[in-house]
């Protein structure tokens, strides 16, 4: 069971570990249903058993990774925003 990489999509990884789950990750699992199809086609949503970020005292769970970017205290809005940012960042990169 090797993970697919290099899909050319934005990777969104939701942590489903204990701490993240009780702090709101259960809501984040509905992300797929709340994204418009246009965006959905460009993201790759996966879960992970633990991102190992809850041990850092500075950041607060739940955690989501959007590509390389860590989002702490994540909720559907902040994750969507981060996805939008990544998408526009790609556009800019392409334009350059």
């Amino acid at each position: 069971m090797k993970k697919e990489t290099g899909t050319g999509k934005i990777d969104v990884t939701i942590c489903t570990g204990t701490t993240c789950y009780v702090m709101g990750a259960s809501d984040l699992l509905t992300l797929e249903e709340t994204l418009p199809e246009k965006i959905l086609n460009r993201v790759n949503i996966t879960g992970t058993t633990c991102l190992n970020l809850c041990k850092n005292k500075e950041d607060k769970p739940p955690f989501v990774m959007v590509n390389e970017k860590i989002i702490s205290k994540a909720n559907l809005e902040s994750v969507k925003k981060a996805i939008q940012q990544e998408l526009s960042g790609e556009k800019n990169a392409n334009a350059e």
């Binding site: 069971m1 090797k2 993970k3 939701i14 489903t16 570990g17 204990t18 789950y21 990750a25 259960s26 699992l29 509905t30 797929e32 949503i45 996966t46 879960g47 992970t48 058993t49």
Partner: peptide
């Protein structure tokens, strides 16, 4: 081996299971 989480499993109290 990689772990794949079954994101389709939705439950308020129970986090999804994964496969490896």
């Amino acid at each position: 081996e990689n772990i794949i989480t079954n994101l389709k499993e939705r439950d308020v109290d129970i986090p999804p299971s994964s496969e490896m």
